[in-house]
Simulated scan of single mutants.
Amino acid sequence: MTTRRTILGATAAAPLAALGLAACAEDGGSGGVTLRVGELGATPVTQELFKAAGLDGDLPYTIEWKQFVNAGPEYIEAAGAEAVDVGFTADTPVIFAASNGVPLKAVAATTVDDPATSFNAILAGPGTAIASVADLKGRKVSFQEGTITQYHVVKALESVGLTLDDVETANLPVVDANTALANGEVDAVATLGIYWSQAELAGATLVATGADYFPSIGLLSARTAIIEDEAYADALADYIDRYGRAQRWRYENVDAWAEQYASLTGLPLEVVAATENRAPVTLGPITDEVIASQQDQSDGYTALGIIDELDAADQFDDRFAGAFEA
């Protein structure tokens, strides 16, 4: 059986030693505090967004940016090694952090402005004649185990009375799934974000979004040691405020930002614009609805035998709710 530790270790491919990260946060900046901020992927998108929104100056602390090419699982591993302090991920990595005993808490959440929108999609390859979730029966479907893509497939299949036993599965990261779909190695993929847009541009067709099965939630999380240290907590509160304002600027200037994002990443503007306009979000405090969604997803992984039972409320810290007060 695939275990929670197998998933965490296997997907966090880059060793922490190669990142050159210190074991604990260092003092620095005008306030004597350095926040080590994790950013997922190889491109410093959040850093550039802060600059574009004019939010990178007059910091009362120093930000040391850390890139995690292997995304959420690598960020979790770094947090467990006290090598990063704060970062933004989807909701799923925080579940696996809790399952593995990583001292990490979500302190703020993004939710989609329109509940009918989603970051997540199940797409069918060209020529597969898959038009609905029911058509997935007996077909080969790609998702990455222990991620929201697996949860999406499970929930979609459940909605039509099917289970994972009714499909052939392929455990592929989203970064590799599009190639498999284009080559006909799989019939459908569960994907998200920019990869959704890339696949559709290559001819894939939409089968189902995540909106019918779960809300699209992102989580800003921090190590508990940072949350509980007064000086670092003050810096974290400021960072939360700036991150929220950066998101507002992003969607208020979506066309200009899409052009900058495309230039930064080298992706086609068509792909970036589709992604940026698909599901605008707002950063806000932890709510009962966010915790309930996290509990549902945690229970889903428990039912699959991937993790032990968790109390999702333990994955959150709401002491920064004041950062969102007018």
Results as ranks from 00 to 15, higher is better:
1 M>H: 11
1 M>Y: 09
4 R>I: 09
8 L>C: 05
15 P>R: 11
36 R>V: 06
47 Q>N: 13
56 D>I: 07
57 G>P: 00
66 K>E: 04
67 Q>M: 12
68 F>C: 10
70 N>S: 15
70 N>D: 15
70 N>L: 14
73 P>L: 01
84 V>S: 14
85 D>K: 13
92 T>N: 07
93 P>T: 07
94 V>N: 10
96 F>L: 08
100 N>R: 08
100 N>D: 12
110 T>H: 14
110 T>K: 12
112 V>G: 08
118 S>F: 03
119 F>D: 15
127 G>P: 05
129 A>F: 08
137 K>T: 11
139 R>N: 04
146 G>S: 07
152 H>Y: 06
156 A>E: 01
156 A>G: 02
159 S>G: 12
160 V>H: 02
165 D>A: 10
167 V>M: 02
171 N>H: 11
172 L>C: 10
173 P>S: 13
177 A>M: 07
177 A>L: 01
178 N>S: 07
181 L>C: 08
184 G>K: 09
196 W>E: 12
197 S>A: 15
201 L>C: 02
204 A>V: 06
213 Y>T: 13
224 T>K: 12
239 Y>R: 06
239 Y>Q: 07
246 A>F: 03
253 N>G: 07
260 Q>A: 15
260 Q>L: 15
263 S>Q: 07
268 P>K: 15
272 V>F: 05
277 N>S: 14
278 R>H: 06
280 P>D: 13
282 T>K: 10
287 T>K: 03
297 Q>E: 14
300 G>L: 10
301 Y>W: 05
306 I>N: 12
307 I>L: 07
308 D>H: 11
310 L>A: 06
311 D>T: 04
313 A>M: 03
317 D>F: 01
